[in-house]
Design a protein around this nucleic acid. Sequence first.
RNA 1: GCGCCCAUAGCUCAGUUGGAUAGAGCGACUGACUACGAAUCAGUAGGCCGGAGGUUCGAAUCCUUCUGGGCGCACCA
Length: 664
Amino acid sequence: MQQVLRQRLRSILLERYGDTVASVADRFNIEQPPQVALGDYATPVAFELARPLRRSPKQIAAELLESLNSQPLAGFASFEVAGAGYLNARLDRGAALTAIAKAQEDADFGAGVHSLVEHTSINPNKAAHVGHLRNAILGDTFVRLLRAAGQRVDVQNYIDNTGVQVADVVVGLMHLENLSQEQIATLFRELAARNERLDYYCWDVYARVSAWYDAVDDPEEKANRRALRLGTLHAIEAGGNEIAAAADTISTAVLRRHLETMLRLDIEYDFLPRESEILRLHFWELAFTQLKERGVVYLEREGKNKGCWVMRRAGTDGASPDGSPDEDAKVIVRSNGTVTYVGKDIAYHLWKFGLLGRDFGYRRFFEYPERTCWISAEHGEREHPHFGGAEAIYNVIDSRQADPQSNVIEALRGMGYTGAADRYVHFSYEMVALTPRCAEELGYTLSDEDRSRAYIEVSGRKGFGVKADDLIDRLIEAARSEVDSRHPELNDGERRKIGTSIAIGALRYFMLKYTRNSVIAFDFHDALSFEGETGPYVQYAVVRVRSIFRKGRTTSAAALAAVDGAALRKYVESEEGGDIWELWQTASRTSLVLEQCIATAEPAYLAKHAFLLAQQFNNFYHRFHILTETDEARKQLLLATAAVAERELIRVLDWLGIDAPEVM
RNA sequence: GCGCCCAUAGCUCAGUUGGAUAGAGCGACUGACUACGAAUCAGUAGGCCGGAGGUUCGAAUCCUUCUGGGCGCACCA
């Protein structure tokens, strides 16, 4: 409807004032008035025209009003001038009711696009923590949004199985605990048999070994420990030895645990590309050839980076004309010939866009009810799907990695892949930290300085943080005890199912309600809340609607099919009907919100929209008693209102990855 | 030193390309369960939108600058 109004105003502007207003006519704002009473759409276009036309905004708005009124516009009831020169429009509410009840607007503006979302990407050496949850929930939700818009989306979880973090746990188990590769495998089997989480075990080992590196005064011994760490890393990278086998045992086992943890939140992946295959299949060599051919990297012969292959950094001028070295350049290949992290990432991203000229091998790794998760392999299975070669990519990576991410984008641009560089989105978000109170609750003793901070950063290295599974366990426990007391009539399985979906709803909503660039100061009190602006609040609204239709012995589908806008018009045009109309109006905006979320890569808007819908419904629910309404036509409107709210709530909750239970 | 982010109610946060009287949740206080489920609703209190300049018909939003906080800036991954 907004487009209809825009087109009409555009032609009026051009007709009336000619080409002098062409630029304004092409891009003026149409917004929502602050209150429904003022109308459904408002435009400040007259303000913009005041200067070029040398007339007052009010006068111009009056002229536009005259033109608008000269012939009726389908779907609109009236127009008026308001305030100092706003032009407001009112919809024909009867016609709008019919249209909204019939079907939600299509959301296929992204149809056909093949995109790739990388998220989670946790080092496979320890348990996932709250920060990883934010990453995975943001990523998974964004995947759902893209799919809702009709895109074909591949979900990837990058596994750095040959990095220092894995090496540290190898050192811990093989050196501090003196275990062989076979003994590690046995230990993991025993832990699993006892129902203990092996990623928790590794969490402690990792913290212990990190402390061990530093817990020595003798410089020689300190150097020995560093050398052990580095040697372990090199052995893992080289492969084909017991250390590498141990690393593989650890990273594969921990990775499975991560997938299990994420599955608790309904998060699934299509493909797990691993660093080991990027190394073994020589992705880097192919990328290096391209980078050299296209002049993106060059061999530095002078200065601190002498002997390295380097790349100009984004936003710098590069080497000065007098021949002095560019000291700001990013090192891609070290002077000893080994490639840096950014170099490997460039190769990986060339593959993502189908620009590398080589593919991974693929092996089945994890079975979901309706989907197989594949993992990279040097020699894969003969039959397999193909990933990569996407048109657009989104990397869900925290804001601290903005620099390396921009290096990769610059490399792509420098190689002439400007289209790929433009469709490379660093889906950046701020970290999850702990409030000092939360840290103390976990048993950490804080310095006075830490206690005065707003938040404290978590640290896997120090073993400081809230583990994802612990948080999920606590949420389920809390939700369960509520359900148990409210629904003693239900059996244990039913109560468990409901408690779980409430817990997940609370957690996912909690991680989504903050905008991406806000640091979340995590606190159990807020995260465990089921009241106010939370997932369960939204779920509860749906439960109420369902209860109404159960008691009313009808269905929401029937209520929507029965809507006859012309007959119901009078009820929503009255003073009292304003709130009902507002709910319909909000419901009709879901697709618009989805589009904005994708355009800005910001799922938080959708979470807000869900809350607004639920809030308006709850308000409506208290003001109007549906089932006892005696005016049949009015009752139909009330039922249809509940049905529209339910339909949109369920749709939005589904995109947020939140279940709407029948009862709770 | 350079770059990025943040500063809005007691607390945690919204405020979508600059628009009408700056909003919500939590917390505090007052009220509503003999009507569709109170995980709810209604109401009250609470604001120099960090400070100062500027652009504009119009600024929480854009520009400059200052203050206070966070995060980056490796031949680590």
